[in-house]
Each structure stands twice: as C-alpha cells, then as structure tokens.
C-alpha cells in the first residue's frame, strides 16, 4: 500500500482563550487519508472539525500527537494543502484571474506564465469567460468555484474544504457537488470536506468520519459503498441516511445533556 496522503495520529487540540478556562477541542484523534481519497467530516457543531482542517493546513499547531502529509510532519502552511472556506474570501481588489494567480505571484512565477495557468484553471472550473470580472460581480457559486481554482492552480495534493457550500441555495449546491466530483477526479488530489449535511456526505464521500461532540473524537468511520453517480432513490442510500441520522442524534443529545448538567 502507498503512503497515506494525510496521516493523523493521536492528535489533540487544547484552546486556551485569554482569561478563560482551556477548552479541549479535539482528543486523541487518529485516522489516515489515502492518496486521492474523498473524506467527509461529519459531526455536531463545535466538535472541532474546522480546527482539524486548520491544523492539517498548518495554520494552527497541534497540542499533542502528529499530523504528517506524504510522510512529512506538518510544521507550516503550504500550497500543497489547499484550504477553502465557507466564505469564498477572494480578494476584492483583484480580478478573478489575478485572484487565481495570487499564489503564483507570491512565488514569483512570471506574469505571462501566471496568466496562462490562471486562464487554464478557470476554464477547468467553467469560469473561462469571467477572467477580468471583479469577485463581487460573480454569484456565490461562481465565487466558490473561483476559490477552488485559486487552490487548484497550486496543484495541491490535499484539498480541504470547510463547509464550502453551506451558504449556497439547494440547486446551486447540487450543481457544485457534481462540479466538485469532477474536479476531484481530474486533479487526483485527496479531499477533506466538512459538512453538516448528511446528504452531502453520502453523495460525495469514499469514507465519512463521524465525530463525537466536544471534545471531538472519532466516533466511527463509515465507508460509502455506493457506485457513483449516487441516486438518492436507492434503498441503500436511505439506509446510510438513517445510520448517520442516528449517529448524529446520539451526539447532539449528549451535547445537550452536558450543557444542562453544567
């Protein structure tokens, strides 16, 4: 077997907010992501999913354990590990093409080459005719695709997405999921995607990592054995949905019970 793209071993994270008691956000988390695998992270609010992505990205330090990508321990951010946020966070002062070329500019790639890569990447995400538009001239879905293009232009090995479609309407969301699967196939990158939507998890994932409520641990990992494209009419799809609903309900109940006990 090949080396895991991301290897998370006994990782924990303790936040120490100023003037308040420390919070254990993640506790002894372990799992591996295979190269080219599509992982969805599912869990109750506040269980540390975003925190985990930030640590894999190298934006936050782990409090314990190790995270390695391609065998190398993560010590600082790298464009090989792209991160996409719920809000597209494109720079409003750059055109779409310049936004996509931002990482290349930072790394001193020649302007002509930069433009070439940006154009090509934007074509891949279906924004070939939006090159010189301003970000706020685009719809939410287009902005999110441009943000994908910005990450993809750096040829990442791992693409992380923190609730990327949560702010989009239902129709756009469905289109974006198809779009993402296509991107995933032709980039060959591993994807780690956080979502609150059980349907999104079932439609996209190779494996779904279900978290417990805070402190976040791995409750269980569920492989989705359904051929793509996945049909929501499939009875097995329903079985998965029931399974995840039950798993999450447990955790949400537990979280509420704890809050009342405090």
């Amino acid at each position: 077997m090949s080396r895991p793209a991301v290897s998370i071993q006994s990782v924990s994270k303790r936040w120490t907010p100023e003037g308040r008691a420390p919070v254990l956000a993640l506790d002894n988390l372990s799992f591996d992501v295979a190269p080219g695998e599509f992982i969805v992270l599912l869990g109750p609010s506040g269980c540390g999913k975003s925190t985990l992505l930030y640590m894999i990205a190298g934006l936050e330090e782990v409090s314990g354990g190790t995270i390695a990508c391609d065998g190398e321990p993560v010590t600082e951010p790298s464009a090989e590990r792209g991160l996409i946020f719920q809000e597209a966070s494109l720079f409003p002062w750059l055109t779409i093409a310049d936004n996509v070329a931002f990482g290349l500019a930072v790394q001193h790639v020649q302007p002509v080459k930069r433009r070439e890569i940006a154009v090509e990447t934007l074509k891949r995400v279906g924004l070939g005719d939006m090159l010189d538009k301003k970000p706020d001239e685009l719809s939410g879905g287009m902005r999110q695709r441009a943000a994908c293009a910005r990450a993809l232009a750096m040829r990442p090995k791992v693409l992380m997405m923190d609730e990327p479609f949560a702010a989009l309407d239902v129709q756009t969301r469905a289109r974006m999921q198809d779009f993402l699967l296509q991107i995933w196939r032709d980039s060959g990158a591993s994807i780690l995607l956080v979502t609150h939507s059980i349907d999104e998890a079932i439609s996209l994932a190779d494996r779904v990592v279900v978290f417990t409520s805070r402190p976040g641990r791995v409750k269980t990992i569920v492989p989705i054995d359904l051929p793509r494209p996945r049909e929501s009419r499939d009875p097995r799809y329903h079985a998965y949905r029931d399974l995840f609903t039950e798993l999450l309900a447990d955790e949400v109940d537990r979280a509420f019970a704890e809050q009342e006990a405090v």
């Binding site: 934006l59 464009a79 966070s89 990482g103 500019a105 930072v106 790394q107």
Partner: peptide
C-alpha cells in the same frame, strides 16, 4: 478578515508580501 491572512499564509507569502499584497489593499 482572518481568511485573507490565512490564504496568504497558505500560498507561502512572506510577512512583507502579506503586508503589501493583502493588508494594504484591504485597509486602503
């Protein structure tokens, strides 16, 4: 916005690049 800074860090921008290419246009 913190995300602007995050993007700059992920892309490998130095402190100086982050200031001139991200922070200054954001506050201008």
């Amino acid at each position: 916005p913190k995300n602007y800074i995050h993007v700059a860090r992920i892309m490998g921008a130095s402190q100086r690049q982050t200031f001139w290419k991200v922070i200054l246009p954001a506050i201008l």
